[in-house]
Design a protein around this nucleic acid. Sequence first.
DNA 1: GTCTATAATTTGATAGAC
DNA 2: GTCTATCAAATTATAGAC
Lengths: 172, 172
Amino acid sequence: MTTDATIRDRILDAAELRARKGGYGGFSFREIAEDVGVKSSSVHYHFPTKADLGQELVERYTQRAMAYLGDAVERTPSEAIERVTQLFRNALMRDDKMCLCGLFGAERDALPAEVAAATAEFFRLVIAYLTQGLGPNWTGDPPAAILARLEGALIVARVLEDQTLFEQSVRA
Amino acid sequence: MTTDATIRDRILDAAELRARKGGYGGFSFREIAEDVGVKSSSVHYHFPTKADLGQELVERYTQRAMAYLGDAVERTPSEAIERVTQLFRNALMRDDKMCLCGLFGAERDALPAEVAAATAEFFRLVIAYLTQGLGPNWTGDPPAAILARLEGALIVARVLEDQTLFEQSVRA
DNA sequence: GTCTATAATTTGATAGAC
DNA sequence: GTCTATCAAATTATAGAC
């Protein structure tokens, strides 16, 4: 028996795809419903408001990202950096999409409070991962700087449609 | 006689303020019209479509940025970097807003083609400025990396509401 | 150049049948 | 849980008077 994705997950999948292209205003209940093959009222059944949907979207995205990063304790500094770098490289190369939280972060003044809060938590957790992975003797770029570089590198590479700019920005 | 801003400029001012908070979907003809004190049909008189408005918005933003940077030939490498850095610091500290093109860049998959093209031109021009200002003997971060760091630093500092993270990300 | 009026569409959201 | 039906509001955009 194959693991069937629940309707709920398929809604989140469709929403994530659209949100990573156009941001919080870039997806609507009706579009997502059509993507999934249900009616918009069914989407509202699972996620009463758009803020609910947005919040869960970011939380699932964050959980997946942290699961991909794994345990920072087990990494050397360069492994920790490479792991986070690969997370963002996947967004660019594999998904051809922005980082959901980078995009929401840029829009943060226009987000419902709970979505903005969930977005901030993503940044905090990635920074905490780097802080732990780099250890107390790290003298290179601080964790927030590494994260900033990666989010910015995604934007630059995608706007100029040149993936080598990502690698260029990432080598420090 | 004081220099009265034209209605056209005041429309662009209002649109820029809103676009730098919520992106391309974050401003509407009616909102801008109310900000300026006219009717939405008058906004359409000056900018027939939203894509027209978006494009001119980005072009004016780019012109102002390049005017602020001045002539790259007159700068040492560290002066060139500091000048670009100050451009972004102003967005954060003085305006408390995102860089318009950083936000539009993150949303680029959902932008009308002409707006996306104008946004790409901003990135090209800033990179060209840095390329010239740093000169052929520059061995530090490449221009695209410096720009990426600055756009990302804006996002991180704003999402976590900590301006020191901008300075932290900017010192390389 | 600005207005009134309006069109056509889309949006987030709800009520109630099944 | 999903549907039909509907709502009120907002959206981009246009026609035509002044």
